[in-house]
């Protein structure tokens, strides 16, 4: 499984943030498939669906979401063996201590506060892509795994 096979699940309810995030991903030359879930229920249903569950994923998770919020999504994903180790990057506006602490307590892999400055936001997205789609290695058998550092999908130039 290569990095290209990883589907990015963007969990985001705000259409502006969705568009900006997709734009930032594409501008960072990240060509992976991007699936957008607009609330927590959609995200959980998608990831725990039989077919989607067979693919490798990187989850970019907003916290403030309708229906199930981000922390609840995280809790459900960690409770299921299929998504137990799926990399989840919390990508949120909040810089509340309790959100930060709670996210890590529930097993988030990373916590990024979305900057207002789009240039900084793009840089953050690029860094996320480089790290999780290229550098990071996941344990074998994990459905979130990138088995080997993939082909160079990131054009850092």
């Amino acid at each position: 499984m290569s990095a290209d096979d990883v589907t990015i699940l963007l969990v985001e309810d705000n259409p502006d943030d969705e568009e900006l995030c997709v734009r930032a991903l594409r501008r960072s030359q990240i060509k992976n498939e991007i699936v957008v879930a607009h609330d927590g229920v959609e995200a959980v249903e998608y990831l725990l669906d039989q077919n989607a569950g067979e693919r490798a994923h990187l989850v970019l998770l907003d916290l403030k979401l309708p229906r199930l919020d981000g922390l609840q999504v995280l809790e459900r994903l960690r409770a299921d063996p299929r998504t137990h180790t799926t990399p989840v990057v919390v990508l949120t506006t909040s810089d509340e201590q309790r959100d930060l602490i709670e996210s890590y307590n529930l097993g988030a892999n990373s916590y990024i506060r979305k900057p207002v400055d789009f240039t900084q936001f793009s840089d953050a997205i690029r860094a996320i892509g480089v790290y999780w789609l290229s550098l990071n290695r996941q344990p074998p058998g994990s459905l979130g795994a990138v088995a080997s550092p993939g082909r160079n999908v990131i054009n850092t130039g």
Partner: peptide, 22 residues
Amino acid sequence: FSYAVSHDLRAPLRAIHGFSLA
């Protein structure tokens, strides 16, 4: 209130900045 301010005031700012930069 702080929580709402932190989320709800920053999100539109990010959109204004992002789209004007685009």
